[in-house]
């Protein structure tokens, strides 16, 4: 009995090894193939991804609850401790803002009278969805946020995502209940922008680092840019409404003109997804596979 099992083992061991080697090679090849498919942005890959994230959304939400409660508690304690100081600061700010309000009202009135006298056509009205941030991308080579709103809430591909301080990125993939925001710092992010007050079109390109870079600008335009200039969205390409704040020029040096984003999304709990109905050059992915809900 003992001898027989040993004999069988001796016969099958090399075979098993060969099978294991072949399987390993096959898996490596499969990984390489998937990388190529994913790089080619084959829609099926993105569809599978959003399907999986849709399934995972309730799990993420459930895990987030205790973490959020803890977070809220620590924030409450910190705020209580700083209450007096905060109050003082807010009074000062209120005073300052009231002066601004005066100025804004005056300007608004002036603006509307000028608009009506010039017969300006106003940009299309915006629609927005507020969504909670479910997760930051865990990948080291991607700058993305996962949010809790999808096609069911009217989020569309290419829509602009903002927090209170400014723009953070655009919607890159839409699932039924989730969507992904390609942050403006991502390696693949390219946004049409301009310097506030100028009409020079340029592109803000992310490189996964914290400070995205201005590219494709005319030489005379780059000479006029100074540190502290405000960078806003441009209507060039018809993909975005003009004038949304993105950030300020932080550094002009050997690495080019770097922009510090105005918005801090690392602490953002909510984002707003604005839809102006502008699709720009972004094409909807062609339908390769039948959608799940056909005829349903």
């Amino acid at each position: 009995m003992q001898n027989r099992t040993e004999a069988v083992f001796r016969l099958t061991a090399p075979l098993k090894l060969a099978v294991a080697r072949a399987a390993f090679t096959l898996l490596v090849a499969a990984s390489l193939g998937l990388i190529a498919l994913s790089r080619a942005e084959v829609p099926v890959v993105e569809r599978v991804r959003m399907l999986l994230l849709d399934q995972l959304a309730p799990v993420l939400a459930a895990v987030a609850q205790p973490a959020e409660a803890l977070d809220r508690l620590t924030t409450d304690i910190r705020e209580l401790m700083a209450l007096r100081q905060e109050n003082h600061r807010l009074r000062a700010e209120l005073e300052r803002l009231q002066q601004w309000q005066e100025a804004a009202l005056r300007l608004e009135a002036e603006n509307s009278s000028l608009r009506s006298s010039l017969n300006v056509s106003t940009p299309p009205a915006q629609r927005f969805v507020t969504a909670t941030v479910m997760a930051d991308s865990g990948a080291a080579f991607a700058r993305q946020l996962l949010i809790s709103a999808g096609s069911a809430q009217g989020v569309t591909r290419g829509a602009v995502a903002v927090v209170a301080e400014g723009l953070i990125g655009r919607i890159s993939d839409v699932g039924e209940r989730t969507a992904r925001i390609l942050l403006l710092t991502d390696l693949n992010s390219r946004l049409p922008v301009t310097i506030e007050g100028s009409r020079q079109p340029m592109i803000l390109a992310g490189d996964n680092g914290p400070l995205p870079r201005l590219t494709y600008l005319a030489t005379d335009a780059s000479q006029r840019i100074t540190v502290g200039d405000r960078v806003v969205t441009s209507a060039h390409g018809g993909a975005m409404p003009p004038g949304l704040l993105i950030g300020t020029v932080a550094e002009i040096g050997a690495r080019g003109i770097l922009v510090r984003p105005a918005a801090d999304w690392s602490a953002a709990e909510f984002v707003r997804v604005l839809d102006y109905g502008l699709r720009g050059v972004l094409q909807e992915a062609p339908q390769l596979a039948p959608t799940r809900r056909r005829g349903g």
Partner: peptide, 13 residues
């Protein structure tokens, strides 16, 4: 890779 974003297959490889 699917959940985290980025190119699918990089982590697997």
């Amino acid at each position: 890779d699917l959940v985290g974003g980025g190119l699918v297959g990089v982590t697997a490889l």
